[in-house]
Design a protein around this nucleic acid. Structure first.
Lengths: 189, 189
DNA sequence: CAATGACTATACCGATCTGTATAGTCAAGA
DNA sequence: TCTTGACTATACAGATCGGTATAGTCATTG
């Protein structure tokens, strides 16, 4: 397979960027870990920034895919799926994952909203929002956009709280809040 | 004044770290901006990490002070003060401030929970939580800790959403959520 | 067979990084 | 007056940074 080394490179980069940060992770470290020559990297990517973008793209695909699949496995009912967001989150943190969100981290290191990396992160969040918005619409929310945005604020809050304070059960607390706002938007108990 | 240069250094460092990130901001850049010689820095601080810690300490003092003052200026009623959290946030974003939270950013770059920098960030969040918990207790919440933690999840969610997606009015959306959970905990409309 | 292109190895570039060494200025206070 | 200590200036160390140059291997494919 031709693209094997490229893939290895992006996977390794994603993991190291996630664990150590973007600026703190040098090209040489990625190369040594992936077992790839430097010229191979610059054959596939013009710069480190493009490797970062590729890593974020991979993460975006994987995360959204698994996120949606996990939610949809929890229930068939759209209303329950809105709440399942936080059950999935709880499971994620329960299984060790607590290094925060790579996209939030990316915006921390690349603060300029016009930078390609920051924009990629913003786009990821927008796509997650769009998905939650679909669920909210299917659930018959009065204002699906508003509800989805509120749930996403909770979602990001949970991720950050888990990362900063190591608080795994914040997903459970957020779920309680989600119950209230979903119930209110759907007009009944 | 003896400590003038030290103060200048910490102020400049705080601003640059906030705008450009911790790893991306070199010592030399801070020195040039502050107009301070390198040996002066290493006279006051053992390392860059200690300068980072001092900058975070300054930010912690300032933020919590202004945060509490702003909230307490909004209302005398503890219940209204819980909601005022999000009014203060809305004003903050309205006045341009949207570069995210330095403590969240710090945890993005220093992921190891045992690192001094990460711990300083966690401690800051804990102190904010403690303050909100006090307000919740005064308001007569059934479970003040739970309510405070939920409000803090919302708070961090709002900050991150504003930073990543440039969404200034997420504070307003979070306030609506806060109204619901506060109302539920206080047992009446 | 010839050509293509993914890949490797090594050496190098200039810049920048944190931190130190050296030597000295200058003002405040005992 | 003498000492202390905050401060400056310059030069440098050793490492690492992102990225390039050069030269060549090797498997697939036309």
């Amino acid at each position: 397979m031709a693209r094997a080394k490229r893939q290895e490179l992006v996977e390794t980069a994603l993991e190291l960027f996630h664990r150590e940060g973007f600026h703190a992770t040098g090209i040489d470290r990625i190369l040594a870990t992936a077992g790839v020559a430097k010229m191979t990297l610059y054959h596939h990517f013009r710069s480190k920034d493009e490797l970062i973008l590729a890593a974020l793209r991979l993460r975006d695909e994987r995360f959204r895919n698994e996120f949606m699949r996990s939610i949809e496995r929890k229930s068939d009912d759209p209303e329950q799926r809105l709440l399942a967001i936080f059950d999935v989150l709880a499971e994620l943190f329960g299984s060790g994952e607590s290094g925060g969100c790579p996209f939030i981290n990316a915006c921390a290191e690349y603060a300029d909203p016009d930078s390609a990396i920051h924009r990629a992160a913003a786009e990821h969040k927008r796509m997650v929002l769009d998905y939650v918005c679909e669920l909210a619409t299917l659930a018959g929310a009065r204002d699906a956009v508003c509800l989805a945005r509120q749930l996403c604020i909770l979602l990001d809050g949970v991720i950050v709280t888990a990362q900063v304070s190591g608080n795994a059960d914040s997903a459970r607390l957020a779920r309680q809040v989600a119950v209230l706002i979903v119930r209110e938007q759907l007009g009944s108990g």
